[in-house]
Design a protein around this nucleic acid. Structure first.
Lengths: 142, 142
DNA sequence: CAGTTGTTTTGGGTGATTCAAAACAACTGC
DNA sequence: GCAGTTGTTTTGAATCACCCAAAACAACTG
C-alpha cells in the first residue's frame, strides 16, 4: 500500500508530477518532522536548482492533497511529516523542541468526542503533549 | 479567590507592579482570547502612552508568572487569555479562527496520560478541537 | 508535437515578534 | 519621606517565516 513511488502517489492524488514535488515527498517519506528550510536542504541535495519558494508551494500543494501533514507546535515554525491518514498525535520537547509521534493514547483512534460544544461542529481533535525528551532529561538531571 | 485586584495578583506573583502590567492583566480578566495587538489596543484606552513592545514584554512576564496563558493555534498569531490554572482546552474555527474554551471533555481534568512514551517525561497535554463555529456554520449552510 | 494549464523561478513584501540601548519608575533600606 | 538599586518601559531597528505576483518554464492533453 505504501509501496507506491512518490510520483505514483502524486499522480494518484490528481496532481501534476514534477521533480520538486517528487523530491519533497521523498524527503518526507521517512520518519521525522521537518520545517520548510530542512525540506529545502534535503531537496537541494538531489535537485540543486530548486528554490525555497518552490518548496513552500509544493508543501502547500501536498498538504492540500493530503499527502503530507502539517503541524505547527507553539514556538516552532510549521513542520511537515509524511505520515498521514491516521490522526496520530505529537510529543514536543519543551527544551529542544524535538517532536516525536505518539499513537492515540486515549484509546479511540480519532480521540474525538463529536460533541456540539459551544455550537461548534467539531471534525478534528489535535493533541499535543509537552515534556522533556530523553536527551534533555539526562542533560537537565546533571 | 478571584476577587483580588490586578495589582494584588501581580505582586502576589512576585512581580513589580506597574501601570502597564495592571492594564494588561485587566484587559485579559474577561473571557476571550486576544492577540498582542488587541491587548495593546485595549491598554491604550486607559494608558495611551504604552508601547506595543511594552505589551509584548508584559505578556511574556505575566505568562512566565502563570497569570496569563498563551496559546498558539496553527494559522493564528499568539493569543493570550486570563483563565489559567485549569488546563482547559480550545475549540478553533477553521473558517474564521474564533477560539472558544472547552472544559476537558475526555473526563480526567488534566487529560493527561503520564506515560513515558518515547522516553519523554510528559507534563502537559494540550488539546485543540477544530471545527466550524455557529456563525460560520450558518453562513456555510446557505 | 503543439497547445493549454498549471508550476517554478525570481524578486519583492509583510506581519508578528524579538533585540538592544537609553530613559525611566517601583521597591529597598536609611 | 528620600536616595539607590534593580528591573521595566520606551524608542528604534532588525529578524524570521511566510506570502504575493509576474514572467519563464514544464507537464499532460489531443
Amino acid at each position: 500500500m505504501d509501496t507506491e513511488t512518490a510520483p505514483e502517489r502524486i499522480r494518484a492524488a490528481g496532481l501534476k508530477v514534477t521533480a520538486p514535488r517528487s523530491a519533497v515527498l521523498e524527503a518526507l517519506s521517512g520518519p521525522g518532522h521537518l520545517d520548510a528550510e530542512a525540506v529545502y536542504e534535503r531537496v537541494r541535495q538531489t535537485l540543486p536548482t530548486t528554490s525555497l519558494q518552490a518548496v513552500y508551494g509544493v508543501l502547500a500543494a501536498l498538504t492540500g492533497a493530503g499527502l503530507v501533514r502539517r503541524i505547527e507546535p507553539a514556538g516552532s515554525s510549521a513542520l511537515y511529516e509524511g505520515r498521514t491518514g491516521d490522526n496520530h498525535h505529537h510529543l514536543v520537547c519543551t527544551r529542544c523542541h524535538t517532536v516525536a509521534d505518539v499513537d492515540c493514547v486515549v484509546g479511540e483512534p480519532p480521540c474525538l468526542e463529536p460533541s456540539d460544544a459551544g455550537g461548534f461542529a467539531i471534525h478534528t481533535a489535535e493533541v499535543t503533549f509537552w515534556g522533556l525528551c530523553a536527551d534533555c532529561r539526562s542533560e537537565t538531571a546533571v
